[in-house]
């Protein structure tokens, strides 16, 4: 990385914040507007991918906890499965969300705190983990390739 691309580096680092905000917004507005866990996860992952492109994988991984990306995906999916199938324990069919249809929901701003939100969060984690994981794999494979060449 030559000093000449200080600007892109600064921009990239700076963009991380708005990208994160967009992701959060997409997620929070998911149930009431366009966007959902998948979109949010992808946007967030694109933000991380931008760091890879600009900083290279070593530096990107130094400042971001992305080595655990596959773990995030696994935890997300496990969480999703847990939320989906937990109702079985109380004798309800799978994917019965709480609170039940028609009942009042606690609100956090505009976000209605139903278990389906947690489910969406699980999807967010999975998608984020998966995309970042693939970007990471490709980045390392690229390094390997250049070393061989």
């Amino acid at each position: 990385m030559s000093p000449s691309n200080v600007l892109p580096r600064a921009v990239a680092r700076f963009l991380l914040l708005p990208i994160g905000m967009i992701a959060v917004a997409l997620f929070v507005k998911g149930l009431s507007s366009t966007g959902d866990g998948f979109a949010a996860g992808t946007v967030a992952a694109l933000g991380v991918a931008l760091q890879y492109v600009v900083f290279g994988h070593r530096e990107a991984e130094r400042c971001l906890p992305v080595r655990r990306a596959p773990l995030a995906a696994v935890v997300g999916l496990a969480l999703g499965i847990a939320i989906g199938f937990a109702p079985l324990l109380s004798g309800d069919p799978a994917f019965t969300h709480l609170p039940p249809a028609g009942e009042k929901v606690a609100k956090l701003g505009t976000l209605e705190l139903a278990t389906s939100v947690a489910f969406d969060a699980a999807i967010f984690l999975t998608v984020f983990g998966m995309v970042v994981g693939i970007v990471r794999e490709l980045a390392w494979a690229a390094e390997q390739e250049t070393e061989e060449a």
Binding site: V74, A78, I81, F85, L88, G91, P93, A94
Partner: peptide, 17 residues
């Protein structure tokens, strides 16, 4: 219905882990 989902749930969760 719990038994209906059990054969699906077991390998699914196990595989994720």
């Amino acid at each position: 219905t719990d038994l209906l989902f059990l054969p699906l749930l077991v390998p699914w969760l196990a595989a994720v882990g």
